[in-house]
Design a protein around this nucleic acid. Structure first.
Length: 444
RNA sequence: GUGGCUAUAGUUCAGUUGGUUAGAACGCUGGUUUGUGGUACCAGAGGUCGCCGGUUCGAAUCCGGUUAGCCACCCCA
């Protein structure tokens, strides 16, 4: 071992990778637990896949840009391997490999870290957690609608009161493009359109003209339709004549009509789900419904849950047609938002009760009483040292314990416990037999 | 990957035109005669000023490189 004078290794994490401290990790676990509960309530089942895949499985799926961001190396057996950069491509491989066993429709959720070697920025890291759910093997619009309902329930369960799910359908966009003879420029136009909110209408028009190479008239007519505002039904009605006779566009419209009809029938608040013809999502593989979720109190942080429908997830792995629809909760971005909204408790302890060690000779009794409380379902920590009771109370306060239990010679003599509520300073002497129920009531 | 900004204690920051032992607040540890936290008072620990090199009698301060972080672009969660 090195002595104290030797040069120490500098404790540091890799660029874009970070440690997560308890306060933040507890919020993160809450978020993920909530997502799990909601996904499971709809019948989505958990899966996992390896962090490392053959490079050929992962590469070439998201264009040149994302290939550059993949962490890739030769393993000890000289295999060309790569770390997954999302959960969707591994799902494609997984589905192609196992769909015969699983059958369709197959609903799965998947929570796990992914890695991208891109330049870190605010809310953007080289290692981050995705929390995906998808339904594979059904083209029914019912699964699109259910995806929307899952997103809604997810944010309600997290405790967000004001949020909007913006919905669009690529078929509507593609219909508009076809009617304007622009289908060959769809990728560039959709990408430009996606920036509407951020850079403004004029900038989008000039990007379409300069970078995509369409005429100014064409660009303007796309934007005219993309900028329609009003209630979903109003927008749908305005779109109808613009898409008349175009099969793709009309299909998109009817899917959206059904979706908003279900939103009504399910009694979601009127402003909860919006139809926004301008959202396109950058990813090329979406082919139908598209979702983005914005927080009412923090819209500028961007979409915290996005997704959509894709026609053929696994075409690179199998000739079996596997359509799907799903979305992904942005755990890290959501966490950043929750911090800004004051939803992350500081200095919180996972256990609400602290048993102080007043008399070091009674350590066994303290452990025994803590165990009784735990068996009653009450998280309980025992202070490990018989320090001054003031110190222990200070610790209890700092860590956010809600109840402290204190017992010294007097209490042991008459078989009682001092139970103190940290919030209001109230303290009561409780008989040994009543302890569990008393503490449990106090924590209600 | 491109452009710009930044780097001093655990955290947020001061630090004069380069000049002795680098400061504050908060946090942390201990104490204010050892059975009670949030407030007050006292004390302590903690920094080779991101790292490497250069200029200089002398560098936290000026210059170069490097690493890391922030902002914008690109892309996305």
């Amino acid at each position: 071992m090195s002595n104290s004078k030797s040069r120490k290794i500098k404790p540091q994490t890799l660029r874009g990778f970070r440690d997560i401290l308890p306060d933040q990790m507890m919020a993160r676990e809450f978020l993920i637990d909530t997502a799990r509960q909601v996904y499971r309530s709809y019948g989505f089942a958990p899966i996992d896949t390896p962090a490392l895949e053959y490079a050929e499985v992962l590469l070439g799926k998201g264009g040149e840009e994302s290939d550059k961001q993949v962490f890739r190396f030769l393993d000890q057996g000289d295999r060309d391997v790569a770390m997954r950069f999302d959960l969707t491509v591994p799902l494609a491989r997984f589905a192609a490999q196992h769909i015969q066993t699983l059958g369709t429709p197959f609903r799965r959720y998947h929570v796990g870290p992914v890695w991208r070697g891109e330049r870190p920025a605010r809310g953007r890291f080289r290692e981050f957690v995705q929390c995906d759910f998808d339904t594979i093997g059904s083209t029914s619009n019912a699964t699109d609608i259910e995806t929307l309902l899952v997103i809604n329930d997810l944010f309600e369960s997290i405790g967000i009161e004001r949020f909007t799910i913006r919905v669009n359908n690529r078929c509507v966009l593609n219909g508009l493009l076809q009617k304007n003879d622009l289908q060959n420029h769809s990728v560039g136009i959709l990408r430009a359109l996606d920036k509407l909110e951020k850079i403004g209408r004029d900038a989008v028009v000039s990007e379409m003209v300069e970078r995509v190479g369409v005429s100014e008239d064409q660009a303007n007519s796309v934007l005219e339709m993309a900028c329609l505002t009003g209630s979903p039904n109003e927008v749908l009605s305005s779109l109808e004549p613009l898409l008349a006779g175009n099969e793709t566009g009309e299909h998109g419209l009817s899917c959206l009509r059904e979706l908003f009809g279900t939103v009504d029938a399910c009694g979601l608040p009127a402003d909860r789900v919006a139809l926004d013809v301008s959202i396109a999502r950058g990813l090329d593989y979406y082919t139908g419904t598209i979702y983005e979720t914005f927080l009412g109190d923090l819209p500028q942080i961007g979409s915290v849950c996005s997704g959509g429908r894709y026609d053929n997830l696994a075409e690179l792995f199998t000739s079996q047609q596997l359509p799907g629809v799903g979305a992904s909760l942005g755990v890290d971005r959501m966490l950043a938002a929750m911090e800004e909204l004051g939803m992350v408790e500081q200095a919180s302890t996972p256990a609400p009760v602290l048993v102080t060690m007043f008399d070091g000779g009674k350590a066994a009794e303290y452990q025994a009483v803590a165990r009784r409380l735990r068996l009653a379902g009450i998280g309980t920590e025992v202070f490990p040292e018989a320090k001054g009771i003031g110190k222990q109370m200070k610790y209890a306060n700092r860590k956010g314990f809600r109840v402290a239990i204190i017992a010294g010679a007097d209490e042991f003599e008459n078989g009682t416990w001092q139970v103190k509520g940290l919030a209001d300073g109230s303290q009561e002497q409780v008989a040994d037999g009543d302890l569990q129920s008393f503490v449990s009531d106090l924590l209600q």
